[in-house]
């Protein structure tokens, strides 16, 4: 059964009064749930948040489905998101994604056997001048090459 930590519950309580309406707190609170649930939002974690906030479950469901930053499937400890939009594609972002998957032995979108990595292709992340780039959890890595990216990913603790 999923439950937020005590600090997590405190966070939700605060968010619920931070904005003009309680509903605005759904997105920030779902981020918190995702963080504490190992990087994804499960159906039961959605139901839990709805109950905790005392809002209709479909409010939370709607947000979880619409926004791409909410992972509806489990992800590895490091969620590696490689931009493959135009400027990054021109700088080899797509080939870099393939190389990362090969080197780490993981299929795109899947979780690696050791549960360390999930690699996905994403749209422009606002780093087009420092292409190619990837985002690993919250952090940006820019001006990459395939080798550099693989090295960075292998060395994450």
């Amino acid at each position: 059964m999923f439950e937020l930590s005590r600090e997590g519950i405190e966070f939700v309580k605060k968010e619920m009064t931070r904005y003009e309406t309680k509903r605005s707190a759904v997105i920030p609170c779902l981020f918190r749930v995702q963080k504490e649930n190992g990087g994804w939002v499960s159906p039961e974690s959605i139901a839990y948040l709805a109950q905790l906030m005392d809002v209709p479950e479909r409010w939370v469901q709607e947000v979880a489905t619409f926004y791409t930053m909410f992972n509806k499937q489990p992800v590895g400890k490091y969620h590696v998101q490689v931009c493959c939009n135009i400027s990054c594609a021109m700088a080899g972002g797509r080939e870099m994604t393939d190389k990362i998957c090969q080197s780490l032995g993981v299929e795109e979108g899947a979780v690696s056997k050791d549960r360390r990595y999930t690699v996905s292709r994403v749209e422009c992340l606002g780093s087009c001048g420092t292409a190619p780039m990837m985002q690993v959890n919250d952090d940006y890595y820019e001006n990459l090459s395939a080798d550099k990216a693989v090295k960075i990913l292998r060395e994450l603790e």
Partner: peptide
């Protein structure tokens, strides 16, 4: 105050952004 989006290009469109700030899709 600051509000974080959650990954959707369409929230850059002003009325989409307003819906998002209201906690909706």
């Amino acid at each position: 105050d600051v509000y974080s989006g959650a990954g959707a290009y369409i929230c850059g469109e002003e009325t989409g952004m307003i819906s998002s700030l209201e906690g909706k899709k």
